[in-house]
Amino acid sequence: MVEKRGVGTNMVHLVLITGIVIVCFPIYLTFVGSTLTHFEVIRPPMPLVPGPHFIENYTRALTSGVHVPVGRMLFNSLVMAMGIAVGKIAISILSAYAIVYFRFPFRMLAFWAIFMTLMLPVEVRIVPTYEVAASLGLLNTYSGLILPLIASATATFLFRQFFLTVPDELLEAARVDGAGPWRFFKDILLPLSVTNIAALFVILFIYGWNQFLWPLLITTKPEMNTIVMGLKQMMPTADDYGNWPVTMAAAMLAVLPPVAVVLFMQRLFVKGLVETEK
C-alpha cells in the first residue's frame, strides 16, 4: 500500500468525501422530501433539512400509497426477488454439479447450450416468454413473476468454475468414506460453496428486486405490482397531481431491503475471504 503523509492524506480524504457527497446527496434529498408536505416539495427552493412529517408520510405510503399500498408492493418485490435469487442458485448449483461430477451423454453439449443462453437477456426473449407464460395461466401470479427469470447461465458457469477448483481427492476421500453423490453434495460441496452462494445471492437478489420490464408485462392487477413498477406509476404524470412526499417515502422504503441484504451478506463475504484454503 502506498503510504501518504500530511497534505497527501488530506487530499485523499477530500477526494473520498467529495465522492461520497456526490453519491449520497440525491438519497439525502429523497429522504428530506419524504418528511415534508407536498407543497413544500414542489415550491422552490426545496428545503434541505428534514421536516416534521416523517411518520405521517411513511405510514401513508405503507398503508395506502398512491394506487396500491407500498407495503403490498414491497411484499410482492420481496417474494419475487427471493424467489429469483433462491431459485437461480438452487437450479444453477445443481446443474453445475451435474456437469462437473457426472459423465453422461451430451454433457459438453448441455454445458455449451447453457453457456450460449448467457447471450440472451430477458428483453430479447420477452415476447415468446410472455406467450408461454400467458398460455400457462401465469399472468398476475408469483410463479409468473419468478419462473421465467429463474434459469441462470451465469450462476451455473460460476459454480462450475468453482467446482473445478475443488480437489478431486475430496471427492475420492468422500467416496472412500462411503458418501454417495447426494451426501457428497450436501456434506462437502454445499458447505464449501457458501461464500459463492452468498455473493451470488446478493447479486441475484438485487437483480430480481430491480426487474422492471418483466413485472410490467406479466402483472395487470395493481395488487400484483412490484415496488419498482409502483414507483414509476407513483411519479406524477402530465394530468396527475401526484403526491411527492409519499412517492419519496416509497423510494426510501424500496432501497431498504437490498441494503439489508448487502449488509447481512457482507459478513459471509469477509469470512469467505479469510477462509480461502480448500
Binding site: E169, L170, D187
Partner: peptide
C-alpha cells in the same frame, strides 16, 4: 491421500 484430502 498425498495431499491429505481433509474436509476443510
Amino acid at each position: 491421500f498425498q495431499n491429505y484430502a481433509l474436509y476443510p
